[in-house]
Design a protein around this nucleic acid. Structure first.
Lengths: 65, 65
DNA sequence: CCGAATTGTAAAGTATCCTTTACATGGCCA
DNA sequence: TGGCCATGTAAAGGATACTTTACAATTCGG
C-alpha cells in the first residue's frame, strides 16, 4: 500500500513530530508510515484523511495485486 | 467505527461464507466485521470497497470522537 | 421430521499495528 | 565548535486483526 503522507506533510511544512501530535500517534509511527514499513489501521487512516482534508483513496493506493 | 457490510452483503443475497471467499478472508472475519467486533485492516477495507463498488467512506464511518 | 445451510461464538495461535525508550546521523546556525 | 532540530532505526511489549478448529442454535426445503 503506497501513501502520500510525506508529500502532504511537507506541503504544510510540518515535522514528523508535529504531524504525530496532530494525529495522536507517536513520531515513530508517522516515520514508519511514511517509509512504508506498515499500513495504518483504518481509524488512523480516517484521521489522516480528515487532517489533510482528502479522501482516503486520495492518500492511500492499494498495491495493484 | 460503524460499517454497512451486512447491509451491502444482504442486498446481493450473499452468505458470509461467499463474501469471505470473495475477500480472501475467513468467514469468522466477515462475521466479526459485520458485528463490529473489530475494524478491518486498511488493505481489507480497500478490498471491501472495491467489491461493493463504493468509496471506503461510503461503507465505513468513524466514531464521532 | 431430517438434513443442509447459515449464523454466532470460543479458544489458541500468528501477524500486524503502535507504544516507549534509546541511540545514531546529518543539517543548521549562534 | 557546540548544541538543537529533524529524521532513521532498533528492541521489547501491548493491543488489534486474522487464522483454524470446533461446537451450538436457527432456519428452511424435501
Amino acid at each position: 500500500m503506497k501513501n502520500r503522507i510525506l508529500e502532504l506533510r511537507q506541503q504544510r511544512n510540518w515535522s514528523q513530530a508535529e504531524l504525530a501530535l496532530a494525529l495522536g500517534v507517536s513520531r515513530q509511527t508517522v516515520n514508519a508510515l511514511e517509509r512504508g514499513r506498515y499500513d495504518p489501521s483504518l481509524p488512523l487512516a480516517f484521521k489522516i484523511a480528515q487532517l489533510f482534508d482528502a479522501a482516503i483513496e486520495e492518500i492511500f493506493q492499494p498495491d495493484p495485486a
